[in-house]
Design a protein around this nucleic acid. Structure first.
Lengths: 181, 181
DNA sequence: ATCGTGCGTTCCGTATACGGAACGATTTGT
DNA sequence: ACAAATCGTTCCGTATACGGAACGCACGAT
């Protein structure tokens, strides 16, 4: 039973066949059973992380090439959505003094999104790649165009919007200091 | 037995705790057992893909935020290493007009790394999180400290180095316009 | 025509990932 | 201060992912 077919099987089969490797050979070089690999490709098994790492390693691709997705991804749950902003968490960096969350953000033109205050000490950093962004504290938003970077304290209400007709593409970095308790 | 601890457990635990969600609550909202989640975080279990999807979905993060990896990955192909710079490819964004490659970069102090020119139109954008970076065109490098962002045209020789005693941690975004032919 | 080799799938016993229900420890409410 | 709730871990029976060994099939060589 597949139950939650995620496309890993078909993606893996295409990857393997595009390299002209047989199922038996890949199973052997990955150190897993043929039955396991066959079931994985057919979608009749729910592979463990260990199996996925073995296969990805044998193919010489990052695990994300099997699991992540060229566009059709159903993982809408991975996104944060609001009136104007769609954001996807890319990475979380744990540094000694703070946690950094790096998100990719899109802002639709013509709408302004309010965001409630975060905890004290939290700062937001935005680097704009496309479009012109107007964002920052609700009472004093800042402007940033492609290649520019703005930052503000996020412990007050803040807003996101565009200052031009185009959609804005940017990265948002949220810095949360380790709470001192 | 963990066998191949990939850091998923500790990363997941930090992610969960940084949001102030209890293990019990996350297990409930993900629709999985507390025992499963506990074992996953402790690294005593080898989770299935289905479990990983459930947890990532409940946290609202892409699966890659759990699985993408800190260093033990055999996929050295994803890494770029040089005299002073170690970079790991985090994500590739395909936009209509350009390809963006987002990398996490570390620059060791005391060494300067030369990088050959890229194709015309390629720009590099760096956001610094720690340390002071000196980078940019070889004849006119720029400085950037924590929270600052610099960018330059990468079709000339450029350099990476530090301007202080500390290692620099930054993200590097390379924008390559779709070739016009 | 009959091997011999390799393919991908299926069968099967074993190892283990799963969820439910304990458990002790800690926090919260009265 | 005690009781109730909730925390994260551990115990345990069940479901299932695992690898080894069949299986049927498609070729190539003698």
């Amino acid at each position: 039973m597949d139950g939650s077919e995620t496309g890993v099987g078909s993606r893996l089969r295409r990857l393997r066949e595009s390299r002209g490797i047989s199922l038996s050979a890949l199973a052997r070089s990955a150190g897993i059973g043929k039955a396991t690999l066959s079931g994985l490709e057919l979608g009749t098994r729910n592979p463990t992380l260990e199996t996925l790492y073995a296969v990805a390693g044998a193919l010489g691709v990052p695990l994300t090439a099997l699991v992540l997705e060229p566009g059709a991804e159903p993982a809408a749950a991975a996104d944060v959505r609001g009136a104007a902003v769609t954001a996807t968490l890319l990475e979380v960096f744990e540094e000694p003094g703070a946690t950094f969350e790096l998100l990719r953000m899109r802002v639709r033109p013509g709408v302004v999104q309010q965001s409630p205050p975060h905890a004290p000490g939290v700062t937001e950093h935005v680097t704009v790649y496309q479009g012109v962004l107007r964002a920052g504290p609700a009472d004093a938003p800042l402007l940033a165009g492609p290649g520019e970077h703005i930052a503000w304290q996020a412990d007050v209400p803040h807003v996101y919007g565009t200052a031009g007709p185009d959609e804005v593409v940017a990265t948002l970095l949220i810095r949360s200091p380790r709470q001192i308790g």
